[in-house]
Lab assay of single mutants.
Amino acid sequence: HNLTITQGKLFFHYNPKLCLSEIHKMEEVSGTKGRQERNDIALKTNGDQASCENELLKFSYIRTSFDKILLRWEPYWPPDFRDLLGFMLFYKEAPYQNVTEFDGQDACGSNSWTVVDIDPPLRSNDPKSQNHPGWLMRGLKPWTQYAIFVKTLVTFSDERRTYGAKSDIIYVQTDATNPSVPLDPISVSNSSSQIILKWKPPSDPNGNITHYLVFWERQAEDSELFELDYCLKGLKLPSRTWSPPFESEDSQKHNQSEYEDSAGECCSCPKTDSQILKELEESSFRKTFEDYLHNVVFVPRKTSSGTGAEDPRPSRKRRSLGDVGNVTVAVPTVAAFPNTSSTSVPTSPEEHRPFEKVVNKESLVISGLRHFTGYRIELQACNQDTPEERCSVAAYVSARTMPEAKADDIVGPVTHEIFENNVVHLMWQEPKEPNGLIVLYEVSYRRYGDEELHLCVSRKHFALERGCRLRGLSPGNYSVRIRATSLAGNGSWTEPTYFYVTDYLDVPSNIA
């Protein structure tokens, strides 16, 4: 807008934040220059609390790290170098490059900038070799853009010569660093050979998330399962459950009422301010606690030095998902009996873990797994792929695949051998790939016309006998059925096997 004052003059007093240069501009645009008398524009009460600059400061050096910015700028000295009290560095987070010096300023003089007072450097006698002032900004957020400017702080001049310097606002972004852990990993099994893994992005990506790394490792069953005799009275049979499938998407929606109208769909109840505040506090606490764990609990591995020492970490090797089922080394339970199943799973520490690289999504279907087997899954978020990966501390989750139908069934015939004193040795093959492992066998036998009897055969007993022995049988026709019990439950009964026990007292003698 054009402003013209045809008559009258300007009068400025007691404006401590208004620089004289701005008042002189007002004289020019209003056409009143030359009308004012000496005392109409006070030299001592206008701009006496402001830094009124008329020179431009330029930054000469900028260096960044993930949490620091090192700045240096060209030296500046007023005509009387004693008038320079120091520099004021202003900075704040700036997602967009549209910041002005006066953003967030209120009537009390406060604003949204963080201000650092910096002492002037030592003055050199040689004007050509003056030290460049600077400042190291610490405690910054990774991968965050900051708006920065600097200006001088000078003393009051009796001659009211307006001098000083100020830089333009520059924008500097800190470097990326390792992201925080992925949030809320959930693993479920939808079949006997697959596990579905879902997660949420890290709360602090500290860069642009480029991919996720998912490692999985087959877990050995508890050692007590191999040692305890679950045929003993009072000892509860062990059981394991597989990871249940995901709930429906509708039930997972946030901010939804727990109660549904019987007449149909209901609208979600909005969260109160107290609920939102509580969630923010919980989120802040979780982030602080995660940072504490990362800094205190997890110790970084030592990389190899120039002395030739090897990095103890196993090298990563990509495998196809079809090879995942046989990740671990199978060892027989008892070496003397080769027909026992290889369900003991000690994992070799030198073995390469299978892994998958996930790009542009937060889910993965891990296939080719062994049925009813526990897996430990390790999830890392990465925001750099080359020249070397920059990934987060791992988040861990466990899951067990679903049982395989008929995996616990005894394959092959049940054979028998009759000894003296009416002892019958029953023999059968253990299931080759049971659900988890076989903890015991149930032997059901009966003599024709009598009630059915049951015998429990422990895992250890089966390994020693290759089956079991029935003792003290009365003469007669017998039928026997056997079924295995694994961590997933009972298998199917075998087809009945028949044998006849004679009275050993009636056996004919070869003595003449």
Results as ranks from 00 to 15, higher is better:
Leu487Pro: 06
Lys361Val: 07
Gln219Trp: 11
Val507Arg: 14
Pro245Met: 05
Glu362Pro: 04
Pro354Tyr: 14
Asp250Ser: 10
Ala463Asp: 14
Asp229Pro: 10
Leu440Ala: 09
Leu225Ile: 10
Ala488Gln: 06
Ser341Tyr: 01
Phe285Lys: 14
Glu282Met: 07
Asp222Lys: 12
Gly325Arg: 04
Leu321Thr: 12
Leu225Trp: 14
Val329Pro: 06
Thr485Lys: 13
Ala395Trp: 07
Thr502His: 04
Ala484Met: 08
Ser262Gln: 10
His211Tyr: 03
Thr497His: 08
Asn477Ser: 04
Pro354Ala: 10
His254Met: 06
Glu351Val: 10
Ser492Ile: 11
Glu388Ala: 07
Ala395Glu: 07
Glu224Ile: 03
Asn326Pro: 10
Arg319Gly: 14
Gln252His: 07
Asp291Ile: 08
Val296Lys: 15
Asp311Phe: 15
Asp385Met: 07
Thr401Met: 01
Leu487Glu: 04
Thr347Phe: 07
Asn255Phe: 03
Arg286Ser: 07
Leu369Cys: 11
His211Gln: 09
Thr494Gln: 02
Cys266Pro: 08
Cys231Thr: 04
Thr303Lys: 09
Gly489Thr: 10
Ser474His: 08
Thr241Arg: 11
His211Ala: 06
Asp261Val: 15
Ala336Ser: 12
Arg483Asp: 00
Arg390Trp: 08
Pro244Asp: 14
Pro346Thr: 14
Cys231Gln: 02
Val345Asp: 06
Thr333Ala: 15
Arg218Leu: 12
Thr497Val: 09
Ser248Arg: 09
Pro338Glu: 08
Arg313Cys: 14
Asn360Lys: 10
Ala381Glu: 03
Glu495Ala: 07
Ser223Cys: 14
Val297Gly: 13
Lys357Ala: 10
Ser348Glu: 09
Gly491Trp: 01
Glu281Met: 04
Ser398Thr: 12
Arg301Gly: 03
Ser223Ile: 11
Lys361Gln: 07
Ser305Thr: 14
Ser239Lys: 15
Tyr445Phe: 06
Ser479Gly: 02
Val327Glu: 11
Tyr500Lys: 11
Glu351Met: 13
Ala335Trp: 06
Pro245Glu: 11
Leu487Arg: 09
Pro338Ser: 09
Leu280Phe: 10
Lys302Gly: 01
Lys460Arg: 07
Ala309Val: 14
Val214Gln: 00
Thr401Arg: 00
Pro387Tyr: 14
Gly325Cys: 11
Glu260Pro: 10
Asp503Met: 10
Asn295Arg: 11
Ser274Arg: 11
Cys391Val: 01
Tyr259Ser: 10
Leu437Ser: 01
Val214Arg: 00
Thr333Asp: 12
Ser274Cys: 15
His454Arg: 09
Glu282Pro: 11
Glu260Met: 14
Glu247Leu: 11
Val480Trp: 05
Ser458Tyr: 11
Tyr498Lys: 12
Asp229Tyr: 13
Thr502Arg: 09
Pro300Ala: 08
Trp242Pro: 07
Ser344Thr: 11
Tyr230Pro: 07
Asp250Phe: 13
Gly207Glu: 02
Val439Thr: 11
Ser203Val: 10
Ser363Met: 03
Val214Ile: 13
Leu437Pro: 04
Val365Pro: 09
Glu221Asn: 04
Gly489Tyr: 11
His352Ser: 06
Ser223Ala: 10
Ser243Gln: 09
Ser262Pro: 10
Leu453Asp: 06
Pro387Ile: 05
Gln256Lys: 11
Leu455Lys: 04
Phe355Ser: 10
Asp291Lys: 06
Leu232Val: 07
Ile482Lys: 01
Val414His: 01
Ser257Leu: 12
Val501Trp: 02
Arg447Gly: 06
Asp506Pro: 14
Thr347Tyr: 10
Leu237Trp: 11
Gly207Gln: 02
Trp493Phe: 09
Leu455Pro: 01
Ala399Pro: 07
Glu362Trp: 14
Gln275Arg: 10
Thr241Ser: 07
Val359Ser: 08
Pro434Trp: 01
Lys432Thr: 12
Glu227Gly: 14
Phe298Gln: 15
Cys391Tyr: 14
Tyr500Ser: 10
Gly325His: 09
Glu465Tyr: 11
Pro270Thr: 05
Glu279His: 12
Glu451Pro: 13
Val359Trp: 14
Gly476Val: 01
Asn295Val: 12
Phe499Asn: 00
Glu260Leu: 10
Glu281Thr: 10
Arg318Ala: 09
Asp250Leu: 15
Pro434Thr: 04
Glu451Met: 15
Glu442Asn: 07
Thr303His: 11
Phe298Ser: 07
Phe372Pro: 01
Glu452Thr: 08
Glu495Leu: 04
Val345Gly: 05
Val324Tyr: 03
Glu249Gln: 15
Asn208Pro: 10
Cys269Ser: 06
Lys432Ala: 12
Ser363Gly: 14
Val299Leu: 06
Ala484His: 00
Ser251Trp: 02
Leu321Gly: 06
Ser392Ala: 03
Glu420Lys: 10
Tyr375Met: 05
Pro332Trp: 10
Lys432Glu: 12
Arg313Glu: 15
Arg316Phe: 15
Arg240Val: 12
Arg313Ala: 12
Glu249Trp: 08
Ile209Arg: 13
Leu440Phe: 07
Gly489Ala: 14
Ser243Arg: 10
Thr241Met: 11
Met427Trp: 06
Ala405Leu: 04
Arg286Lys: 13
Val397Tyr: 08
Val297Tyr: 11
Leu453Ala: 02
Gly489Val: 10
Ile511Phe: 15
Pro312Gly: 14
Ala263Cys: 05
Arg471Gly: 10
Asp229Arg: 05
Ser458His: 07
Gly472Trp: 11
Leu277Ser: 02
Leu473Ala: 02
Ala395Lys: 15
His416Tyr: 14
Asp506Cys: 04
His461Gln: 12
Asn295Leu: 04
Glu417Phe: 08
Asp408Ser: 02
Gln252Val: 09
Gly467Val: 05
Leu440Asn: 10
Tyr448Ile: 14
Val501Lys: 03
Gly325Asn: 08
Val397Pro: 05
Gly472Cys: 03
Thr347Ser: 12
Ile366Tyr: 01
Thr347Asn: 04
Tyr259Asp: 08
Lys271His: 07
Pro205Cys: 05
Pro349Cys: 12
Gly368Leu: 04
Glu279Lys: 02
Ser509Val: 11
Tyr230Arg: 11
Arg319Asn: 09
Asp450Lys: 11
Thr373Val: 10
Gln380Phe: 15
Pro205Trp: 07
Tyr441Ser: 01
Leu225Met: 12
Leu321Ala: 12
